[in-house]
Amino acid sequence: MSRIKYIFKKEFGLYFISPIAYIVISIFLLVTGWLFFSTFFLYNQANLRNFFNLLPITFSFVVPAITMRLFSEELNVGSYEILLTMPVTSLDVILGKFLAATAFIVVMLIPTISYPVMISFIGQLDWGPVIGGYLGAILLGAAFTAIGLFASSLTRNQITAFIIGMAICLGLTLIDKMLILLPKGILGLLQYMGADFHFQNIAKGVIDSRDILYSLSISFVALYGTHIVMQERN
């Protein structure tokens, strides 16, 4: 456990040493803030639904950018050899990195709390869906982080890792939007696989164990895949 803690600390610290963290956070806030407030006053409704509606799409781009370096850089520089010959298991490394990136996403979401706070001054805000939305955002962020980590373990090129991660995340987000083209039999399954579908449930304020389980199972599968890839490398 303490070994995961040290890897977590190292990875989390590394985000803030390089300027990447600040750039990613700025871009995220700029894009979500602009998309949200450009239509907010047209709807004239005191809720955050629009913000949360767009979150799976923005996360599909932002999260892989956060996770792309986690393994690719280590493999490229060769520091993975140094890391793994210390008394740690590859599971410690994976979990430490996963938790660090998830924590970074939480940090990235913190400034957006100013949106509901501001809205609560100008209208009647229902805090239930907002809290649900943030919970869903963290779960979604964790699931996408696991996917990004998996993509990063596949290649030593960070750009490739970013594109693979983005493709998988975007695929999961959009899968239930393309159901019109498909036969009825597999509709339920595909809808269940859609990340957006589950996220919107939570964002409405409905906390269903199935939606939470979905995020956890995506995270688990992706982390397990990462574990297998890293084992195979040796």
Partner: peptide, 25 residues
């Protein structure tokens, strides 16, 4: 173990790095 050409974390300070290693050790 010291691998060939010592591939270390370039962004970290030497002291921070050694603290990290001492923690893991």
């Amino acid at each position: 173990y010291l691998p060939e050409s010592a591939p270390l974390y370039h962004d970290m300070l030497v002291y921070d790095y050694l603290i990290f290693v001492s923690g893991i050790r």
